[in-house]
Amino acid sequence: MKLKEIIEKLQLKVLMDQDKLDMEVTGGYTSDMLSDAIANSKEGNLWITLQTHQNIIAVAKLKDLSGIIIVNNREPDEDTLQKAKEENVPLLGSEETAYEVSGKLYELISS
């Protein structure tokens, strides 16, 4: 499923717009530990996290993730937005919890 369809269906906010919204999402990975996310996420995954600092962008970039969803309506730091723009990593936001976003994404992708 394409990232833009997921954005629409999960009613995600696009925090940093990118030209990669046509990208195919392969699944998701939910974690707030960076080492866990870099070790266990897969290419094309959407990373669901509550972390908002700039170091999340490098993880997404290194693992070729399709984007990051920041949950619980948390605001990313200004330098996180800047890095997302520089590295062309789609940064999305949700008002829902990691549990809800993960469950909905799982349903969408496995259906």
């Binding site: 707030d32 530990m33 960076l34 866990d36 870099i38 070790a39 972390q51 170091n55």
Partner: peptide
């Protein structure tokens, strides 16, 4: 910040 999982060297 989500560091300190104790996974760095094992990874």
């Amino acid at each position: 910040m989500g560091f300190g999982a104790g996974m760095g060297l094992p990874n």
